[in-house]
Amino acid sequence: MTILHVRGLEQGYGRSLVLKGIDLDLDVGLTCLLGLNGAGKTTLLRTLAGDLAPRAGSVSLGDRAGDAVQDRASLAGIGYLAQDPVLPGHMSVRDVVEYAAWLKGVQDRDAVGLALEQVSMSSQARDRCRTLSGGMRRRVALACALVGLPPVLLLDEPTVGLDPEQRLQLRDVVRTVAESAAVVVSTHELAEVAALGGRVIVLFDGAVVFSDTVEGLRSHGPDSESLEAGFAHLLRQERSA
């Protein structure tokens, strides 16, 4: 079931065009958004999250008519975790997630507790954000994105800066959420893609140049030996084109 439809999406800063006519359909499940630095991954996620107004194209959520990034009710159905989330240090963990729930218009009183539970932060609910480690902060930010169980979850390089144990925990959370929502994980690390699995979308120079499974990317290379080889072959093809 397709949850998010993106058609002809263009985005840029000043005169430079970063996204060049993106067409995308996101289903329930996990999608890795892979690309080199500067490929447009963060710009695409921020545009889908409503941070940036698209220059052209449309984004629609489920059966809802109209442009999702222009419609506040639709935006509430999209959870977004920024690359390096900033939390208000003077607020408690619970208050931050409750604040996020209020911003999204989430009415369910249990939603905050559930989100904290999903990221294993229930026991730190009363702690001030300034006292948390980097990994914990990222989990709190993830809880903010998860609160209200949005049908679309966009995660921008969520495992950067986490220790191995925290990475494993976060991947578990992401996989669980992906059972009932369309989850997009942006990354430039192939190891992360291999560990997460699911669908892979490769963004190159502002355009989608590949959309298939992890195995499909692996087999894209001449010898089908590794993801690195498949990805490198894809990039060579695109550069020569």
Partner: peptide, 22 residues
């Protein structure tokens, strides 16, 4: 300024609430 940073999970532009209400 508390949540004006786009990296904040509380960035008001993403929610269902209008700027006036916030």
């Amino acid at each position: 300024q508390r949540d004006s940073d786009v990296s904040s999970p509380l960035y008001p532009g993403r929610g269902a609430r209008s700027g006036v209400v916030i």
